[in-house]
Amino acid sequence: MNIEKARFNMIEQQIRPWNVLDKDILDMLIVVKRENYFPQDQKTLAFFDTELPLPDGSKAMSPKLEARIVQELGLKKQESVLLIGAASGYLAALLAHMSSHVTVLETSLALKELAEKNLAADGVRNVSVLLADGLSGQHTGSYDVIVIAGAVEAVPETLKKQLNVGGRLLAIVGRLPVMQAELITRSADAAYDTRSVFDTVVAAAPGAVPSSQFKF
């Protein structure tokens, strides 16, 4: 398999047609090698429009979804990022390429270790991966950008409060069969603007609890 040809086809046939048109994003997809974040038997599949299985039984998001998420955030080099969900580490690597530092919270020890291993092997130094439930409110911080890598039925208020003024939070909100990616911008101390940016369907985020399981 010609890896570079596969990468070119991924960008031109999957990602660009999904309205990812920012040149910086498209150039980054050439620099940050997606195949480096998957084992040998999945490397040729890393460029397919599919969700690849991960060691804990979950799945990595498709390439076009990861690229679209990064584009919608409009990252700046000086910004700090919080990512909920490590997966293979690839989305963290994309975010790290466009920002100052990425903190990743992951509930699965297997995925925490996998992401750390992949990021280190790929020379990514501005990412910290922590074993923590990012949706529980136990972790607190202050960030310019927050990404929830998976579906939630509602965005926790504790996460929104960790946004700096002018910061953005991207989450995929809803339940099957209807989900939307929402971009929430903190416009003032207690004011948030929310807009839907695209439709998609993904598995639940790490630590997400369906509304039917909430206890009152």
Rank of each mutant, 00 (worst) to 15 (best):
M1E: 11
E4R: 14
A6H: 14
A6M: 15
R7G: 12
F8A: 12
N9V: 01
M10K: 00
M10D: 11
I11P: 15
Q13E: 14
I15M: 11
R16T: 08
P17L: 11
V20P: 13
D24W: 03
D27A: 15
V31M: 11
N36D: 11
Y37M: 03
Y37T: 02
D41T: 01
K43S: 01
T44D: 14
L45H: 13
A46M: 03
D49A: 05
P53C: 05
G57Q: 09
M61K: 04
S62I: 02
P63Q: 08
K64R: 15
E72A: 10
L73F: 09
L73I: 01
L75S: 13
Q78W: 12
I84H: 12
I84R: 10
A86C: 07
L91P: 04
L94M: 15
S99F: 02
V102S: 08
L105T: 08
S108E: 12
E113D: 13
E116L: 12
L119N: 06
A120G: 05
A121G: 00
D122R: 04
V124F: 05
R125G: 01
N126E: 05
S128H: 04
S128Q: 09
L130P: 00
L130G: 01
L130E: 05
L131H: 12
D133S: 05
G134C: 04
Q138G: 11
T140V: 10
G141D: 03
D144V: 02
A154L: 11
V155D: 06
E157Y: 03
T158R: 11
K160D: 00
L163S: 04
L169G: 05
I172Q: 12
I172Y: 15
L183N: 02
T185F: 07
A190F: 09
A190Q: 02
Y192E: 07
Y192C: 07
F198S: 04
V201P: 01
V202T: 14
A203V: 01
G207R: 08
P210K: 02
S212C: 07
K215E: 15
F216R: 09
